[in-house]
Amino acid sequence: MKPILEVKNVVKQYGNYTALNNVSLSVPQGSIYGLLGPNGAGKTSLIRIINQITMPDSGEILLDGERLNPGHVGHIGYMPEERGLYKTMKVGEQALYLAQLKGLSKKEAKEQLDYWFEKLEITGWWNKKIQELSKGMAQKIQFVVTVLHRPKLLILDEPFSGFDPVNANLIKDEILELRDKGTTVIFSTHRMETVEDMCDYIALIHKSNKLIEGGLNEVKKQYRTNTFQVGIAPHNFQGLLADISTKFTTRQANFKTLDDELKLEVDLPQGHAPRELMQYLLQHGEVTYFVEKIPSVNDIFIQTVSQKK
């Protein structure tokens, strides 16, 4: 897939501190792209550069193959982690103002706003001031304001923080719908379950460097350990336990089954196929459970970050 956003060798320094050290990324068109990293890794610096809030010291950024320029602000929608709107301004006026700053005409902005207000069932809020709304309500407005100008690229920093589960789901569905219509979404988040759930691609930034980038499954394949979780009702419990430990590295495992079987985690040595383990197990009893242990994004995150410390 052709990338909508390419970040090439971007370096950003603040005084003596390097916030981004030669970072390159490629965000495929129409994907949901998770930008991961611990606090202070450089995510916000990168996002600000993509939004042209700050300029990189070197390197370049291409949007749709064009070098990033001020004309692109209308193609990007940005929801920062620290949410904010004018507290004393009316919801409708505020949304119109922000959309017009992005280059929409007043009429277009009004049409879009009507569409979104109806969609999220908040038409009655037009004349309310933000300070009269609850936090969750304000978040909805924040989301509408971000997508109002139909950006090609949405950048959402911790999009679900502050939402109750109902609204979080609502927004999640809207994001997925936008993606299906062709919008590319960059997520910056700490919530790994969201990443597992929604992202097609991930990149991990740590201490100003990009450590991992790729499709979610490709990354997981790189990090697979060839470990299997097995459940077996053996013919000879003690005999199997003694025998298997001579052939494979095993550990006690914890997963839920109906009966009281023997539960093990088995590391398969490199070059061995799962079939070999399966055949071995079948000789020794009734196999009730056989699953490859796939590394979660959380595992990958923690493993990578702690390795590089």
């Binding site: 939004n51 809030i53 940005y78 920062p80 620290e82 904010g84 709107l85």
Partner: peptide
């Protein structure tokens, strides 16, 4: 100061210089 403490500043400067 209001724009800064409201944090709307980041949204605005992503649209205008």
């Amino acid at each position: 100061i209001e724009e800064k403490t409201n944090r709307i500043i980041e949204i605005i400067v992503s649209s205008v210089k």
